[in-house]
Design a binder for these strands. Structure first.
Lengths: 221, 221
DNA sequence: TGAAACCTTACGGAAAACCGTAATACTCTT
DNA sequence: AAGAGTATTACGGTTTTCCGTAAGGTTTCA
């Protein structure tokens, strides 16, 4: 089990909750920070002093205030941590449930676990810690389909065009008619529905409005 | 009638079309530019040389290319022009038909006319020019309801909350239930529908998806 | 060539959004 | 306190979206 753990989380109550959990799990050395920069400095310092951390549990979003930060978000922090300290285990603990975001964290930043803050967040966090201790990765059930082989995560020009037309206010019927006129295939309403359904699953969107909002945030359209 | 006119428009064919129109209207001194920065420089130069322009006809969107621009968009350009040269008449000629955008141009940047590029775009442009020559303002029929007294253009916190929940994927029914629980009024599905309908009209949105896309672009949520 | 896998289209039912109308409740003025 | 005006809610009907199923078509590969 882990001996020395750092919690990076700006919300004090959540920070405390995670602290309690770690204590219950028998972790004795627990440090807590509310800024990403502090997290990096503490870990760097501990490493230089040859008393490195075993594990970091970090949030993604930190509210910005007067203190200017080198690492404004959890993404920036974990990216830097995993480059500088490859042996350090990293758990991201966040409300974020967009699959694309989760995928990026695993694929590009090589985090060890992703836990969604939710009703059963702490339970999942416990599980994540024990999995990681055994050298495994962990993925919260809420976003478990982020890596399902079913939905290949490719988004092609057709998808973009679809989302773009949707965001311009065209109904699925109108898009179908447009595609027929422009000889774009598939053009049937049914195919368009099917494709949008795939995209909704892929982006964890509840409905078309949510989907468009997500892909706009991602800058896809 | 105007004697010296500048056309700022990056699409060559449209630029030419407007040029022809102006020629037909008897304007002899016509300058054309394809970059906002060039427009500003030409007008500044002409002013310094005491041979100022009477009128600028500008597009809103200019495709970005290798040349970095001080004024990347038509909005930036007209804002600057109207501050530096209050006497200069400005017509915005664009495909943009979002009422909020049009309102901003009139209210904050004090443009003299807004013409939508459409089937009857050049016809409206002619009319706009003649109106402005008489000291009037002009508004393309497509966006004529931008200032209709009916819909007061205030967007309050309730509206924002509504749009935000929508963009998060909540159905109108779910929002209604949420508002009831949180004692936010009005909470009924009917009122929510009504409010969203008002917002759709206000932002010229075809449906809820379109509406959310627009307000996201505006940075309202 | 034949079979499996996949893509496209069609269809039908349930849920949600859209739209007009009307009843009820609240606010403001006189 | 009465009436006008507005806000909120209710309701019904149409359209659109959502979702499962299935038929017809194409591609792939043995």
């Amino acid at each position: 089990m882990f001996k020395k753990v750092l919690i990076a989380e700006d919300m004090e109550d959540i920070n405390k909750g995670v602290f309690s959990l770690l204590t219950e799990l028998g972790v004795t050395q627990i440090d807590q920070v509310q800024y990403c920069d502090d997290a990096y400095l503490k870990i760097k310092r501990a490493d230089l002093d040859s008393v490195p951390f075993d594990l970091v549990i970090s949030d993604l979003s930190f509210i910005v205030d007067h203190r200017s930060q080198t690492y404004p978000s959890g993404q920036d922090l974990v990216a830097k941590l995993k480059t500088d300290f490859p042996n350090l285990k990293v758990i991201v603990y966040s409300v974020e449930d967009r699959l694309q975001a989760v995928r990026t964290l695993f694929n590009q930043h090589h985090i060890d676990a992703y836990v969604c803050k939710s009703r059963s967040g702490l339970k999942n966090l416990t599980q994540a810690i024990s999995e990681i201790a055994q050298g495994n990765k962990f993925l919260s059930p809420e976003v478990s389909n982020a890596f399902s082989t079913e939905n290949e995560l490719e988004i092609d020009d057709y998808d973009i065009s679809l989302l773009d037309h949707l965001s311009k206010g065209l109904s699925q019927d109108e898009i179908s008619a447009l595609y027929r006129k422009e000889n774009i295939s598939p053009a049937s309403l049914s195919s368009i529905e099917k494709r949008l359904n795939k995209l909704r699953i892929q982006f964890n969107a509840k409905n078309a409005i949510h989907l468009v909002a997500i892909v706009k945030d991602l800058g896809l359209i």
